[in-house]
Amino acid sequence: MEELEIHRPEGVRLQKVLASAGVGSRRACEDLIEAGRVRVNGEVVTQLGVRVDPDQVAIDVDGERVCVDSTALTIVLNKPRGVVSTMSDPEGRPSLDKFVSAYSERLFHVGRLDADTTGVLLLTNDGELANRLAHPSFGVNKIYVAKVKGQVPRSLGTTLRAGVDLDDGPVRCTGAAVLDIGKDASLVQVELHEGRNRIVRRMLDAVGFPVIDLVRTQFGPIRLGTLAPGETRELSPAEIGKLQQAAGL
């Protein structure tokens, strides 16, 4: 691999790049390299003298992508109910701008959540990453938990995985499960990579169980966790790396 030629004057030592990305101390990163646990552009690197251009290489540690771009910024927001998924709204409705006003970078929201849906919404300064994560062809799954009207059958998960016909074409969940069954309402978990407008609500309505509340609990490898509605947090380089890997970058 010519770009990994030892002692080239340009580039940054690999262990320094890893340490700057938060993988560990410089010494710990050297140990990872010597143990053969680091790959650069798919090639195992075991020599400590290797220099790389962080903007031009993909680095994996133990098979997990690590984001080594110091300018990369991705934020996860627990979008509250009533907020529209735009940076500003001509109708004056609450939008995303107030949640990212502290950042000078231009941020792109990854896909959308309708105003009544809460949960994981990603915002990033990487336009290509945003486009790939949102496009169904890359198969990045999202997980939702829906509170629906009625007492659902245990077989509902099978029905959703088999597919549901909607006005704009069929949709099939990659995963679905009934979490709880109540007399008047039930909880259903739905996993899919579709991004059509209000797709989860329309799917559940089509099988006879209208949605009362809907929350997206996970987008690719990023989970909602303990974030309260309206709270944000910056993703770590390791988390951004996992998103890049999921998006095929």
Rank of each mutant, 00 (worst) to 15 (best):
V23G: 05
A19H: 02
A246G: 00
V38H: 09
E231G: 08
C29L: 14
T71L: 15
V188Y: 13
N41E: 02
D168Y: 00
V200C: 08
L113G: 10
V45K: 07
R51M: 02
G169E: 13
I143K: 05
D60C: 08
V50P: 02
D167P: 04
L204P: 02
T46H: 07
E30T: 11
Q56Y: 14
I212A: 13
D31C: 08
D184G: 03
D97F: 06
V188M: 14
L113K: 06
C29I: 09
S186K: 03
D180V: 08
T86G: 05
V100H: 01
S155P: 00
V68C: 07
E105C: 09
T118E: 15
E128I: 15
D31L: 11
E234K: 15
S155H: 06
D126I: 05
G111S: 04
V120L: 09
V57I: 10
K149C: 08
M1A: 11
V100M: 04
E43D: 15
A185V: 09
R223S: 14
R13I: 07
N78V: 09
F138I: 01
D126K: 11
R161T: 12
G230R: 09
I212V: 15
P153R: 04
A228Y: 08
G22M: 13
L113Y: 03
R216Q: 00
V45P: 00
G24E: 07
P229R: 05
R112V: 08
S70V: 14
E43W: 01
P94Q: 03
A247H: 00
L156M: 01
R39G: 01
V57H: 08
R65L: 10
P80G: 01
R51W: 05
Q151C: 15
R65K: 11
A115N: 04
K142W: 00
G42A: 13
V61K: 08
S104Y: 03
